[in-house]
Amino acid sequence: MGGVRLQDVAALAGVSMKTVSNVVHDYPHVSDKMRTRVQAAIDELGYRPNLMGRRLATGRTGLIALAFASVEIPYFAELARVVSAAAHRRGYRVLLEETDATLDGERAVVSSSEAGMVDGVLFQPSTMTSQEIAQHRSDLPMVILGEGAAPLSIDRVMVDNVIAAHEATAHLAALGRTRIGFVGHERDGLSATSVQRIMGYQRALEEAGLTPDPALLIASEAVSAAGAVAGVGAAVDGGLVFDALVCRDDLAAIGALRALRERGIAVPGQVAITGWDNIHMSAVTFPSLTTIAPDLTALAERALAMLEERISGFGGIGRHEIVGHKLVVRESTGQPE
């Protein structure tokens, strides 16, 4: 029904406009009985809050944007689920925006394209430089996610990729593996993610008394499972010898599993494998994947808390914070003896 107003819902439900507003904004102090009554009136009338009207009345729309490369990447799909749930608890809805990891797509996120639509943005960049991000619209509150470019003027929440990659590699070294490769980084131009993970990988090798070998860096044409299948397959067919693989992410690990299985190489018997992200499917691959599990709940909660502070007027220097992670050991590596 077009033109349904908040007062129409209030009249049908027999409550005040304030009560309807409290239900719409999901305020916790509304009783379950009253919430059900008001929601029934909302559903019957087909009422939808007017975002522009809300912005004029309160200065806010109740929407925030979450921008990242692609929802086809399982990590981002799971990030979106966690952020949406956390935002809902804070009274926000989340608008997903895919950038396709292109410069134009990312520039659109930090430009005036979001003017008037959202109260703030959580943004995981893949392409933009720190300097360019710093020049974004200052009146659009923003928090950067991940290990990409992040100017000192903007808040950022991330996992320590260097330490996490070090832990995964050290786990493999503790198993007695001595030819440990790294799989899945970009063939043409390393992302910040790959740079940091390779750095942690190299440090762990050196601490274990192993000499880093550039031949063991197995790149992909694209950051994908298919890219890893091709990369690992070509490496094996070309005679490269390794007994363990640190994979840039779980998709690369899944691709490595397939490439090795196709060639009759046992995991973890002949080659141990670690992934990264702890996506849901990592627990049900065969064998199940040992993987780095970022604390997505902590990341979402901290990022949203910072964004709310920015929305409310906080204008201090950017706060760069690290949330936790853990190494989840499964069948693809096994436990050290």
Rank of each mutant, 00 (worst) to 15 (best):
M1E: 06
R5S: 07
L6Y: 08
L6Q: 10
L6D: 01
Q7A: 15
A11M: 07
A11W: 08
T19Q: 07
V23G: 08
V24F: 07
H25L: 09
Y27R: 13
P28G: 01
H29P: 08
D32V: 08
M34C: 11
Q39C: 06
E44I: 11
E44P: 08
R48Q: 12
N50A: 06
L51Q: 08
G62R: 00
G62Q: 01
A69C: 05
V71I: 14
P74T: 01
A77R: 04
A77M: 06
A80W: 10
R81V: 14
V83K: 00
A85E: 12
H88K: 02
G91F: 03
G91E: 00
V94P: 02
D100G: 13
L103N: 12
D104F: 08
D104A: 11
D104T: 02
R107K: 10
V109F: 11
V109M: 06
E114G: 15
A115S: 12
M117E: 06
G120L: 07
V121E: 09
L122S: 06
Q124H: 14
T127M: 11
M128F: 14
M128N: 11
M128K: 09
E132M: 11
E132W: 11
R137P: 08
P141D: 02
M142C: 13
I144T: 05
I144G: 07
G146P: 09
G146I: 06
E147A: 15
P151F: 13
L152W: 15
S153G: 04
R156T: 10
V159N: 02
N161M: 12
N161H: 15
A165T: 00
A165S: 09
H166T: 05
E167Y: 07
A168W: 01
A170M: 09
A173I: 00
R177K: 03
I180C: 02
G181T: 05
F182Y: 10
G189T: 06
S191P: 02
S191G: 10
V195W: 15
Q196F: 15
R197H: 14
Q202K: 14
R203S: 14
E206L: 12
E207H: 12
G209W: 04
G209A: 06
T211G: 14
D213S: 11
I218E: 10
A219F: 04
S220A: 07
A222E: 14
A222T: 13
A225C: 12
G227L: 04
A234E: 01
G238T: 02
V241A: 13
V241I: 10
L245C: 04
C247V: 00
L257T: 00
E262C: 09
R263E: 04
G264T: 00
I265N: 03
G269N: 04
Q270I: 06
V271K: 03
A272P: 00
T274M: 01
N278P: 04
H280C: 12
V284S: 09
T285I: 04
T285W: 01
F286N: 12
S288V: 00
T291L: 04
T291V: 05
I292G: 09
A293E: 12
L299A: 10
A303M: 09
A305N: 11
A305W: 08
M306Y: 15
E308Y: 05
F314P: 09
F314G: 13
G316E: 08
H320I: 03
L327A: 07
V329Q: 04
R330K: 01
R330P: 02
S332A: 09
Q335T: 13
P336N: 07
E337R: 14
